[in-house]
Design a protein around this nucleic acid. Structure first.
Lengths: 342, 342
DNA sequence: TTGAAAGCGCTAACAA
DNA sequence: TTGTTAGCGCTTTCAA
């Protein structure tokens, strides 16, 4: 199939190729008659605009880059789902990259984005990343950059995040109100402060309710289902007493839950459990896993909308970056709802 | 930040810009000394190749389009995860589109892919799609097209799918071997034959074990958690007796499970349940949901690998399309494992 | 080993 | 309302 260009259409109609271009772009100066003829011929010849040429010449693309750690985490795929939907509806295409939590991969992806002359980049930072030169370069080139969830504060870039402090607070407060006294918190030093915020919320909630902060109840490490199980095993081995666990995210909480069930510990009667993120599975497991909803739909939509504004704005990085902070919602399910509370 | 081009580098070094281009592309005819100088200057000036220009001139991109129904379904996001990983490692970028199960959206996406001059397209067809003109055009343009999971047989295009017939068969056989006699199957006329294959497997398994095929036990409709619940409600209303349900996919099976639990029906003692797809949540719910694993990782990798071959091949659509059919694996969990079987 | 020159398909300024 | 022309940044042929 031979490539059809505007020149072919022009030849067919005996008009200038620039007229064809204008007609196809619905330029106001072109007569309806010409437009009609052009469109018909285009259709007949099966013409397709070459976006490469158009973008090269005009100097802008309608492609945006999205960088996420992994689509295998439903939180991210869900946000990407939302972003794609809206950007798509606004005429943008999505170039997708997964960092798989690696700095190197993230950097490569960003470079490809830049080489592809994307109109902007939306990113959530990899677990491993501690240097931000690649993100800085985006900014230097005045290309819109927006972080969601895992943002880098020091870069002074717009972001859409959850109020993690509040999330940590309300999760802990909920456990306290259910009568739990010795609340374990699993946290991780990794990753851009969001886990620190959740930890801060946990501590402040305890303080507010005059519950002493016991360092032995704060477990610092990784996050994964496996790590959650391990925490429960460790607590037992160390003979540390506790009656609730607030895990930094749902997979870890699920590991906690599973290991507790393995030990025949009654949840929520003996030990209450709450996670963070409202992953799809939390509503489906038994007992249902209490969690903090991060409004992934809202996050995707807000990200896309804020980003659309950025794409329009002129002096992008001159005024202070806009920070959208979404309200976390407490989702109470069986894993933390003591019957005695009624 | 001014855009740096090969001309700037050439000026800086007092050589021809075409020499710079060759040096950057590691052309064998260029001396090491020149290459070194060019690379250094490029780095110093913060040069980035403009892929648009390069692709426009050379006539090929290293971008491929991936079209999926929705990233909110873990099966798809997981396969995309796998494809992206491998294509990425092979120097390809991913343009992503979600059809959200709509024909119109799918068609639009494919058009954008074509306009963007993607090197090839990997797709899984939308629920709603019954006309395939958009896919046909890809083929007409001799652009590599590969289907995964939801393929369109009549288009004679390479595909990577699960052996759905076998999946349906082993799911049903498993239920039979667990002693279930009146096995409901929920199916859907929608979607490219895969559900028909599962249905065929179901029927043949029943026949093999001399269990009469009862039309009243075959429920044809949609697929969703809600629909699964509805089926159980309907069966009760119609007073149809059954002791097991094989649902066409996991969300539907989950709906079945939930509604059975709502009715206080004991699973798996009174009724056994099995789904299809091995969605992430199936391992985490209680009782664990038996299912058929479709090897998403394998599917992603196989798709990417087969696709890489297609990208290299010359006479793409002249020989018969390669069809990779992956073996489904039976995953037995509590929802279909009768204690009495031990 | 390097340079000169053409041109990929389009947009947009200028001219008619 | 339409045509002419230049040129986006690169690849690639031909010549030196």
């Amino acid at each position: 199939m031979k490539r059809v260009t505007i020149h072919d259409i022009a030849k067919e109609l005996n008009i200038a190729f620039s007229t064809v271009a204008r007609a196809l772009n619905d330029h106001p100066a072109i007569s309806e008659a010409t437009k009609k003829a052009v469109r018909e011929t285009a259709k007949r010849l099966n013409y397709r605009q070459n976006k490469l040429a158009s973008s090269l010449r005009s100097g802008h693309t309608n492609t945006i880059g999205i960088m996420v750690p992994s689509l295998d985490v439903s939180f991210f795929s869900s946000v990407v789902h939302g972003i794609e939907k809206i950007m798509n509806a606004n005429g943008y295409s999505i170039l997708l990259y997964q960092s798989n939590e690696q700095y190197k991969s993230e950097k490569n992806g960003i470079e490809t984005f830049l080489n592809s002359r994307v109109a902007g980049i939306i990113a959530s930072v990899a677990k491993e990343t501690t240097k931000f030169d690649h993100f800085l370069e985006i900014k230097k080139r005045s290309i819109p950059l927006l972080f969601f969830d895992r943002a880098v504060d020091e870069l002074k870039v717009p972001s859409v995040t959850t109020d993690d402090y509040k999330g940590g607070f309300i999760a802990t407060e909920h456990l306290i109100k259910q009568g739990y006294k010795r609340i374990v918190h699993i946290t991780s030093g990794k990753n851009i402060g969001i886990f620190n915020e959740r930890l801060r919320g946990y501590i402040d909630a305890l303080k507010l309710y005059n519950i002493p902060v016991d360092e032995s109840l704060i477990l610092n490490g990784d996050f994964s289902l496996e790590f959650g199980r391990q925490c429960i095993v460790d607590l037992r081995q160390l003979q540390i007493k506790y009656d609730a666990v607030f895990a930094l995210e749902d997979y870890t909480a699920m590991g906690v839950l599973q290991q507790l069930l393995t030990y025949k510990v009654r949840v929520p009667d003996e030990v209450g459990v709450i996670g963070f993120a409202n992953e799809a599975f939390t509503a489906l497991v038994t007992p249902g896993l209490s969690t903090i909803d991060q409004q992934t739909t809202q996050m995707g939509e807000s990200s896309a909308e804020l980003f659309l504004e950025m794409l329009k704005s002129e002096d992008l990085y001159n005024n202070l970056p806009e920070r959208v902070v979404l309200d976390p919602h407490l989702i109470v399910r069986s894993s933390s709802q003591r019957l005695s509370a009624f």
